[in-house]
Structures are given as C-alpha cells and as structure tokens.
Design a protein around this nucleic acid. Sequence first.
DNA 1: ATGAAAGCGCTAACAG
DNA 2: CTGTTAGCGCTTTCAT
Lengths: 328, 328
Amino acid sequence: MVTIYDIARLSDVSKSTVSRVLANHPYVSDEKRLKVEQVIKELNYVPNSLAKQFRQKQTKCIGILIPNLDHPYFSQLVSSISLECHKKGYKTVVHQTFSNEKLEREVYTLLRNKELDGMILTSSLLSEEEIAECTQNHLIVACNEDFQGNYFDVFCLNEEDVIFEATTNLLNKGLTKIGFCSDNIDTPSQQARLRGFIQAHDKQKLNHNKEYIFNQISTIEDGITLGEQLFKNDLEIEGIIAGSDFVAAGLIKSAVKKDIKIPQDFSVIGFDNHPISLATTPQVSTICNRIKDMSQDLVDHMTNKINGKKQTPIKKIYTGEIIIRESN
Amino acid sequence: MVTIYDIARLSDVSKSTVSRVLANHPYVSDEKRLKVEQVIKELNYVPNSLAKQFRQKQTKCIGILIPNLDHPYFSQLVSSISLECHKKGYKTVVHQTFSNEKLEREVYTLLRNKELDGMILTSSLLSEEEIAECTQNHLIVACNEDFQGNYFDVFCLNEEDVIFEATTNLLNKGLTKIGFCSDNIDTPSQQARLRGFIQAHDKQKLNHNKEYIFNQISTIEDGITLGEQLFKNDLEIEGIIAGSDFVAAGLIKSAVKKDIKIPQDFSVIGFDNHPISLATTPQVSTICNRIKDMSQDLVDHMTNKINGKKQTPIKKIYTGEIIIRESN
DNA sequence: ATGAAAGCGCTAACAG
DNA sequence: CTGTTAGCGCTTTCAT
C-alpha cells in the first residue's frame, strides 16, 4: 500500500508538505504542489481515510435511527436526509430498531464508541430523559418525533393540531363514531396525534370511543384486515383517522369489497400525501408532511453543530395541512 | 477522554491485558480480568472504535449502492440487507445515485479510500468492465442486477425467464398488442426483462410493437400518466407488463377512471408482489421477487469474503414466479 | 514556505 | 498467562 510517506520520498518533500497538498492548504509553493500531485497520480495513491478519521476524530458518518426502512414514510425520510447529508460530505448509516427497545439502546452505544459523528432519531420508544442518558453528551437531533426539546434539538410536524383539524372535519360532517389508527401508540408523535383526536371530540363535547383506538396498524395489509373486522356486521363506525395513506388504502379496499360507499357510508383520512393516495378509488384525503424542509433544516443544523459552529437550541415545528380529496 | 492506558494503569496491568479483556481473549486470569472490568465500569470507559478500525484496517461498514431509497422495491431490499448486515456486526451505509453516472462513480472511490469494507451494487449504469476498473480489487457484489459475473459475484432473479412467462401468459390469452414498462432500460436487469418480453413474441412468431416499450416509468404517478395517454382515444393496446406493482396500480387507476374493464378490455401484470397489489380493484397479478433469500445469501457471502474465508466465485439466480390474481 | 517530530488509541507479534 | 515494543497513516504544532 502506498502511503503519504512514499509520496513524500518520491517528491523530495516532507510528509507535512504532502499532507498540506492533500488538504489544499494554502502555504505550499506551486512548484512543490505540482510535483506532489504528479507523484500522487503516478503511484495512483489514495489517502487512507481510516487514518485520517482516527487522527481527526471524525467519522463523517451520521446515523439515522428508524423503526423500519421498509415503510413508505421512513424510506422517504431517509432518502431525503441521506441526500442532504451527502451534499454536506457526510455518509448516512441506517439503523433499524424494529420498534425494539433493546435494539434502540444498542444503537446509542455507537455514538459513545465514536462510530458516528451524530445521530438523527426519527422514532423512539424511550423518554427524552432516557435517551439523554444513553447518548450522554453526544450529538443527537430528533426528527419527526414530537419531543419536548429539553435535551436535544427537535424538528417535527404540528401533529396534534393537524389531527385536531382532521378530526374536527369529520365531526363537522356529523359523524360521531370515529376511529383512530396508530402504528405505535407509545411514540411521542402518535401521542400528539391522539391528543389532537381527543381534543377535537372534547371541544364539541363529544366522547371518543376507546374501542375505536387501534394500535399497531401501519401497513396496507393491516388496513385491509382492520376493514374486514370493522365491516363484518352492521356498520357502526363512521370514519377513521387512518394515520397513513397505506392504511387508508387498505381500509378502502375492504370497504369496496363490502360495497360500502365512501364517503357516504364511511370516511377516511390518511396521512403523508403519498402517491398511493392518488391511486385509490376514491382518492384519499390526506395530510401533507414536510419531509423535504425538515431534512434540509435538520442536516444543516446538525453539520454546523458537528463543525463547532454555535447553534442555538431549537425546536422547530412544521405545518402539515389537510388535503381534501374524495374519501371524507 | 479515558483510554486503554488509563485502565491499564489503574488496574495494575499492561495495555495488552486490557486489550485482551476487551477482545474477550481467553488467556487472561480471572483475577486480572475482574479487576480490569471493574475499573472499566468505574471510569465509564468506552473503547475508541476509530482507533480500533484504523489499527485493524476495517470499517465494519458495508456500502449499498441504489438509485433511490424512496422506491418500494429498493427500500425493501435495503431494509432486508441492512438487517442481515446488522446480524453479522456490520453497519450499512446507503448511497443513492439517482441514476446518475457521475454519482455512481463517486461512490466507488469510497472503496478505494477504505471508507467501506465492501459494497453491494443493486443497480448500475456502467458495464461490468467499467465497474471493475473503478473498484479495482475491492470487494463488491451485485444484487438484483443481471450481470455476467466475470468480475464479481452476482445474485439475481431469473428476470428474463419470468418475464418471458408473463408475456407468454398474456399472448396465450390472445392479446397481441402488449406494452412493456421499464424504469431504466439501460440497466442489466431491465435489459434481461426486455429480452424475455421480445423472445416470448418471437416464439409465437409475433411482432412486438416498439412504440409500446416505455422507459422511465417507475412510480404510481408515472403509471397514472401513462394510462391517461394510452386510454385517451380508442383503446389499441391490450395489455402491459408493468415492471412494478406501483406502475400497475397507476395504470389500473387510470383505467377505472375511463371505465375500462380489467382484465376484459385491458390486462396488466405487475412485479414484486408488493402489498399494494392487494389493495387495488382488481388486485394485481404480479411476480414475486426473492429479496429475503437474496439478501441473506449475499451478506453471508460478503462477510465471509471480508473475513478472508475463501468463497468460490458465484452467480446465483433466484426463481421469481408469477402470482395470478385478477388483472390478467 | 517547509520539515522534524510527536502522537492519536489501539492491536499484535514476540519474548518471557 | 502477561508485559514490552513497535507501529498503523495521518495531521499538526513548533521551529526554522
């Protein structure tokens, strides 16, 4: 393997000079710079980034913690974050927790081991305090999860408000038996949504029905299965805040099969404005997320922090909005 | 920062012994091991993995090169590969090329820089020879792309055969005007599919219609748009090999809107057996991929190779099969 | 503008 | 079983 030392020897300069050339350091004479560059090319030298990383104590890697990549929202989110990281010269390391607390904790140790320069949490089963304890003083930022923001920076959607609006929309149409689906109810963002759901009922002095709060519903299949249960007998439930467009698509499939008319007999509102919401008949009314803006701001903020630029602590809330189509 | 040396000093042993304890090396007396472990706990010591990696010349990172993560097939594939890598103690670094040749070439330099222990290609715009040149002797493995296998190991589906079958299925129903969609026709796997499509026609002494070969069609929206064009006037085209269930769903949406009956007036066969194929009405006939098996074999193979275990060069072909539902 | 030298934290012969 | 020693390849003072 050819090292910086070989280059130095063959260019009649010191290692330092080669290092300077590599780092594009200004104080090098053109003459030596050219010579060094030539030798580098001749020997087909490539710097050993492991050594560099070790020396500089930087991995140029940012971790991203997600429940599962095979999920339309999270794959979009990771895609977007990964692109932003790449623009800033960082690699993205994906860590799936499969909503398993033990696996989540494991991931945090990578930070302490210095295998990652920072980490982005997109979903968590732990409390802020617990996370802070696991990650110590290492750089983390929450994205998507509605944390308080006492221990780290937070970028998230106005989940509570927008679900309040969506629920109110259904309530205003005279529906009283409305369901709520969540992929993992123990998560801060889902808790926020649930609060919005309940408050919309409270505001109108209506009771929400606890039996209509469904947990662990996140895929098309989940939506289909839930629909099959719900639509089995006399139709009681009148609408659902589905939590995702995929679940909404599954519910619609089940409804169509049972000849239940949407939205006349049953309303559904999805989430994320995923293209699938355009492919169903009727098309899914949904809520737009703000993945693009969020990931840009967040990666910008994070890389600045890594590079020591002071960043004020931040909790940034993005405004999701309802997109009315045909299913409500 | 507390180092191995601090632990050694405080435990009255040498650095080597501490290192041995850390590595779970057998030849350490219980007495010293206990002492060391105790001191480690007291000082809350965490090994610096950057130093370890540098020393051992291993990053414990495997790169995965994909066109775009926000894509149902690739996010499933990455999810599965990432899980397998994690089981073997490797991290997964995602690299999106957005089907851009320059970006693809950039990614290969990471291998030469030793930023990655190996790389998995899932899609490429370059020829095998070009890739081999870019990656030199570094460890790469192709997954999903139907390469020859002269320069690296290949794990892929029997794309050609299975599309031959699917096309034959449509032809046997008496359809003669069949279309073919591809996300990126320049890619080996899509070329293989196209060969299967053409050969099915040839076998029955039928001509395929070049106007019905559509490129750059990969999303639901693409499917919807294509459908709108196709279904505008008198319906000429009688069926499509859609290349993905998402495209199929888009086509079906457009057809439904125009009151075109599927499969009576128009047939479509998807690909991947994604849950969305269950949510459409009619449900999409599709082709199963073999993501799970492929990623297991492939990561197993790759990690063995990284660790120096001899592995015979390999081209493993998996059998995709047609799943008949309601759209053909 | 350049070079000498120190050292990052760890592992792995090797010798005992 | 344990300690000594010699680096890994690079960056970064500190002199000059």
